[in-house]
């Protein structure tokens, strides 16, 4: 891990200002403000149904904010017309909750498809690149398998390999640990850490798995269901120990907050 004091402040990758998200008349979250800097492993956390995945969908342009702006670097993502976002799209890769690999294509074809679209590589070079990406996530040799033929954990890892196909600066992972056994979940955490360290990627993760959060995240935002806005931002370990917001402490301590547990249970 790099010491933040040693070098000048790393550049900001994503800035979110006054973001308000709604479904029709229903306000999911309002007035979110946070920044994600380079090489962050940034966790979006909060109770189930608080709008974590919705926030992710806004960040990657699948939903448009009701109010507020999202900047990638200095460029305004929200002000750009969705059809002209190709420039942004090449900068991030997304792994969806279930992997969301295209089921009619093999793993190799899944990873090759964006490469065929956005690069001028020869078919041989693409094949090599695909094998390399698959071996990064521990799936070498599975090139010709279809998503339905491999396990859920493997689907997620293949999903990460596809998200990394275009060497994005930012990786978005939607609940990478959900539904995995503890060992696979741990391996996935290690994978995320080593990808960040070796490729220098910025990683944004939606999760509510505390073990994962404390193991890998260095920055986070907590979405509070009660107030419908952000409960806290910062390093999750510090938030657990020192957050002013009782809901954040309670969440990060699995409800075992000595001062609050009794009063909040009823």
């Amino acid at each position: 891990m790099s010491d933040p004091q040693a070098n000048p402040a790393p550049p900001t990758k994503i800035t979110v200002r006054d973001l308000t998200m709604t479904y029709g008349a229903f306000v999911v979250m309002r007035d979110l403000n946070f920044e994600i800097v380079e090489k962050d492993i940034f966790v979006i956390m909060g109770p189930s149904g608080c709008g974590k995945s919705t926030l992710l969908r806004h960040l990657i342009g699948l939903q448009e904010p009701t109010k507020g702006t999202i900047l990638y670097g200095d460029e305004d993502f929200t002000a750009t017309d969705p059809s002209e976002r190709t420039g942004f799209i090449r900068r991030f890769g997304v792994m969806y909750q279930t992997g969301a690999l295209w089921s009619s294509l093999t793993l190799a074809e899944n990873i090759a498809l964006p490469l065929e679209e956005y690069s001028k590589l020869t078919p041989k070079a693409i094949r090599d690149l695909v094998s390399y990406k698959l071996s990064l996530v521990g799936l070498s040799g599975y090139e010709d398998y279809y998503p339905a033929q491999i396990s859920g954990g493997m689907n997620k890892r293949a999903g990460i390999a596809r998200a990394m196909a275009l060497d994005p600066e930012i990786l978005f992972l939607d609940e990478p640990g959900a539904g995995l056994d503890p060992l696979s979940s741990r391996r996935l955490d290690d994978l995320i850490l080593s990808l960040r360290d070796s490729l220098g990627s910025t990683v944004v993760i939606v999760t509510h798995e505390l073990a994962s959060i404390f193991a890998i995240a260095n920055n986070s935002i907590f979405l509070d269901t009660a107030t419908r806005t952000q409960g806290a931002t910062g390093n999750p370990v510090e938030l657990r120990d020192h957050s002013e917001n009782p809901a954040v402490r309670l969440f990060l301590r699995r409800g075992e907050d000595s001062e609050l547990a009794t009063s909040n249970l009823s």
Binding site: R57, Q97, S103
Partner: peptide, 17 residues
């Protein structure tokens, strides 16, 4: 429909397809 349910269509969109 099942591609949609499995977020495969979202995945197409985020790759700019």
């Amino acid at each position: 429909g099942s591609m949609n349910a499995n977020q495969e269509i979202d995945a197409l969109r985020t790759f700019g397809f």
